[in-house]
Simulated scan of single mutants.
Amino acid sequence: MRTDRRVQVRWAPRTVAAGDLDGSPAGFGYPGITLTRYLGDHVVEETWIPVDDELSFADDEALVGALRTAWRWGQAAE
């Protein structure tokens, strides 16, 4: 029996709200992608990964690892 597994990769910047030194609201934006795993129409897992011009080697490895894991998970249904 085939299981309908799929992975969606989408651009998903995040904004984190924080208070400024004087108490006024402030926010910080982070570029990133979201890997969403679906089983049928249900979300099984969602992983957000930062992507930026100033990423470290460890950040790059985390991105490659997450993409590989998502790809292998999707392939398991075939």
Rank of each mutant, 00 (worst) to 15 (best):
25 P>W: 02
55 L>I: 05
61 E>G: 07
26 A>M: 12
18 A>T: 13
74 G>K: 01
13 P>K: 03
67 L>P: 06
75 Q>M: 11
15 T>Y: 05
40 G>K: 14
15 T>M: 02
30 Y>D: 15
3 T>F: 12
54 E>C: 01
36 T>I: 06
56 S>V: 04
8 Q>R: 14
57 F>I: 03
21 L>A: 09
52 D>L: 13
47 T>V: 07
36 T>D: 00
60 D>P: 08
9 V>W: 04
8 Q>G: 10
46 E>M: 02
4 D>L: 15
5 R>C: 08
8 Q>D: 14
38 Y>A: 03
50 P>T: 01
14 R>T: 10
2 R>P: 04
23 G>F: 14
9 V>A: 04
6 R>W: 01
66 A>K: 01
26 A>G: 06
43 V>G: 00
55 L>F: 02
45 E>R: 10
16 V>G: 02
32 G>A: 12
65 G>P: 08
20 D>L: 15
78 E>I: 07
55 L>C: 09
59 D>F: 05
51 V>Q: 09
68 R>E: 05
75 Q>K: 12
2 R>M: 02
4 D>W: 15
16 V>L: 07
29 G>Y: 02
12 A>W: 00
32 G>W: 05
25 P>N: 08
51 V>S: 05
24 S>F: 06
6 R>K: 07
50 P>D: 12
71 W>I: 01
19 G>L: 14
69 T>Q: 13
23 G>Q: 13
60 D>M: 11
4 D>G: 13
54 E>L: 07
3 T>E: 15
37 R>N: 01
62 A>F: 12
61 E>L: 10
14 R>M: 08
70 A>F: 01
11 W>A: 09
10 R>C: 03
62 A>C: 14
11 W>D: 13
41 D>N: 12
47 T>M: 07
6 R>F: 00
63 L>D: 11
73 W>N: 15
34 T>E: 02
55 L>H: 06
26 A>T: 09
60 D>E: 08
49 I>M: 11
63 L>I: 10
27 G>K: 07
55 L>S: 03
27 G>C: 09
44 V>S: 15
1 M>N: 09
9 V>Q: 10
69 T>W: 07
28 F>K: 13
51 V>D: 08
5 R>V: 07
47 T>Y: 03
27 G>I: 11
20 D>W: 13
53 D>T: 14
8 Q>T: 10
26 A>E: 11
19 G>Y: 13
23 G>K: 14
48 W>Q: 01
28 F>W: 14
59 D>R: 11
21 L>H: 03
6 R>A: 00
56 S>E: 10
25 P>V: 02
67 L>T: 04
1 M>C: 13
69 T>E: 12
19 G>A: 14
66 A>L: 03
13 P>S: 04
68 R>N: 04
57 F>E: 13
63 L>P: 08
67 L>S: 05
35 L>G: 00
7 V>Q: 00
10 R>Q: 07
35 L>I: 00
7 V>L: 00
8 Q>S: 08
43 V>Q: 00
